[in-house]
């Protein structure tokens, strides 16, 4: 991602953002609300169009063509704050739809894949239920499994635990930690600093649409360079590992 600029009308949401993520790297994006973190990751799978700059995913340059958008979306999975499961389909159907429609995989193969990933997020026994019958934490784990069923190369997380009750945050974070340990490339927008500390290779701090500071979690939390970062970290709970370690 190089020189990315994005405007909403007259408001500039991203200012000249450069970011390179290596294969297998885990990035945590943090910053105050309105700083452009969500916008940034939504540009990566073209839920938002950019006005200037370049985005290359897994060697494919993202432009306005349907083909390029298609190719990139095949490689990029995304998990949303509000889960966005399809309410009229069972958990299993939620996970099977995209592989069948977008990857043209046979029904039985899609079901086998879906069950495998549902098992992996430890929710295999709920496959026949509808999303509304599950707790928030369970729904988010289904959403993670649904994204994994497309076998993405990169996973984007857009505040995956912000809509959850505190006691459900851990089960979702544990699932994400498991995914990280399996070597998935991950870009996470999150306020869970404990997660950042434990999993991230790099923590990136954004404000007003710019990347202000980035570094290893250790350096980032122990010795933030910018006043803006220090202020942000001061306002947020100190990073602790409590409740996040498996």
């Amino acid at each position: 991602m190089k020189g990315v600029q994005k405007w909403y009308g007259g408001y500039q949401a991203l200012r000249d953002v450069d970011l390179t993520v290596r294969k297998g790297e885990k990035i945590v994006l943090c910053g105050p609300s309105g700083s452009g973190k969500s916008t940034l990751i939504r540009c990566i799978n073209r839920l938002e169009a950019i006005q200037q700059g370049n985005i290359v995913v897994n060697g494919h340059r993202l432009d306005d063509s349907i083909k390029a958008i298609d190719v990139v979306r095949q490689d990029v999975g995304m998990v949303f704050q509000s889960f966005n499961l399809f309410p009229h389909m069972t958990v299993l159907q939620n996970c099977m739809l995209a592989p069948i429609r977008a990857r043209r995989i046979g029904k039985s193969a899609a079901e086998a894949t879906a069950r495998k990933f549902l098992e992996r997020v430890r929710i295999g026994d709920q496959a026949e239920k509808y999303p509304a019958q599950l707790s928030g934490g369970q729904q988010q784990r289904v959403a993670i499994a649904r994204a994994l069923c497309m076998q993405p190369k990169v996973m984007l997380f857009d505040e995956p635990t912000s809509a959850l009750d505190p006691e459900m945050v851990k089960e979702v974070l544990d699932t994400m930690i498991g995914l990280a340990n399996d070597g998935m490339t991950m870009i996470c927008v999150t306020h869970e600093m404990g997660f950042a500390r434990q999993v991230a290779d790099r923590v990136i701090f954004m404000a007003e649409g710019q990347i202000i500071e980035e570094g290893s979690p250790d350096a980032f939390f122990r010795n933030p360079q910018h006043a803006r970062t220090r202020q942000f970290l001061g306002e947020n709970p100190r990073p602790s590992l409590n409740g996040v370690l498996p």
């Binding site: 298609d70 949303f80 499961l85 399809f86 995209a98």
Partner: peptide
């Protein structure tokens, strides 16, 4: 229908016809 439904479908790589018909 909430915007998030369409976004989730797009993020999964579903095309317009499938997004409409299935979601």
């Amino acid at each position: 229908v909430p915007r998030g439904q369409t976004e989730a479908a797009m993020a999964l790589g579903l095309h317009y016809s499938s997004r409409m018909r299935d979601i």
